[in-house]
Simulated assay, not measured.
Amino acid sequence: MKNVLLPAFYLPPISWFSIFLDSENEILFEQFESFPKQTYRNRTNIYGANGKLSLIIPIIHNGNREFKSTEISYREDWMDIHWKSIKNMYQSSPYFEYYEDKLKGLYDTKEKYLLDFNLKSIDIVQKILKTEKAYSLNDEYIKFPKEINYRENFSPKKPSEFEMEQYYQIFEDKFGFLKDLSILDLICNKGPESTTYIKNIK
């Protein structure tokens, strides 16, 4: 087994799940890092009618920088906006209707902390994928951890380095295949085949 330190993301990209679900990896989530801006910790990318669309969770800027204590802002109804965006973009996909109720559950209750919301999103995806991957949370921030460190490996600002096969996407006739979007894109378009697809990512 390999010990792996992963950041906890909001409906993570497909490549993240290839690391998370790898049977060789024992997963530890980072909760004590200083909250980094413009990462998948508070955003997810879906395929919109105009190309890639980022859904961003607003956070409260109260001086605290620790990820586990980062609070979500509800001054605007972003949950409703995110859900309507997801539904509008994926309701014509092959499998959305099968997972709609589970996905909607993510936006039914307000979590105070971003970490809790992200873990909830990961747990919901696991139910859809019918996986039961165990994970734990770290006890302290270590700059140079002994685990394989993936804290900086996934960036919405850089092209994904992971290799993955093309699959059907609703708007691909307009913008082509968009690689490594949110896991949402994969499960809505490939359904039960998603887990096999994830295992073949390199």
Rank of each mutant, 00 (worst) to 15 (best):
Q91P: 07
T195M: 10
G191A: 02
L6T: 02
F67W: 10
T39G: 08
K52C: 09
D108V: 12
P12L: 05
I124A: 06
L184Q: 03
Q38E: 14
Y74K: 08
P94C: 07
S93D: 03
K102M: 13
L184V: 04
Q166A: 12
I170S: 09
G48S: 03
K110L: 09
L178F: 03
P156L: 07
P192W: 05
S182Y: 00
A49Y: 10
D173I: 09
S85L: 09
K143G: 13
I128A: 00
E33L: 06
L129V: 05
I59R: 07
F32P: 08
I72M: 11
S160E: 03
W78Y: 11
L186Y: 03
M79L: 08
A8F: 03
E147F: 10
I170Q: 08
S18W: 05
N64D: 07
I86T: 04
P7A: 07
E111D: 15
D80L: 13
I148D: 08
I60H: 06
K146L: 12
K174N: 09
Y98R: 11
Y95G: 06
Q169P: 07
T70K: 03
I122A: 03
G105D: 14
S34Y: 14
K120I: 05
S15Y: 00
I81M: 15
E100I: 07
E76I: 14
K174F: 13
G105L: 09
K179E: 12
K190V: 04
Y47H: 14
W16C: 03
K199A: 11
Q38F: 09
M1G: 14
N153H: 13
S155A: 08
T131D: 06
E193G: 02
E111N: 15
N88A: 13
I72Y: 06
L106R: 00
S34F: 10
D101R: 11
G63A: 01
Y150T: 11
F20V: 02
N138L: 13
M164E: 02
Y95C: 04
H61Y: 07
N200A: 15
K133V: 08
F9A: 00
E24Q: 15
S18A: 12
F32D: 12
L103H: 02
F154E: 08
P192H: 01
K37S: 14
E33H: 14
Y40G: 01
I201F: 10
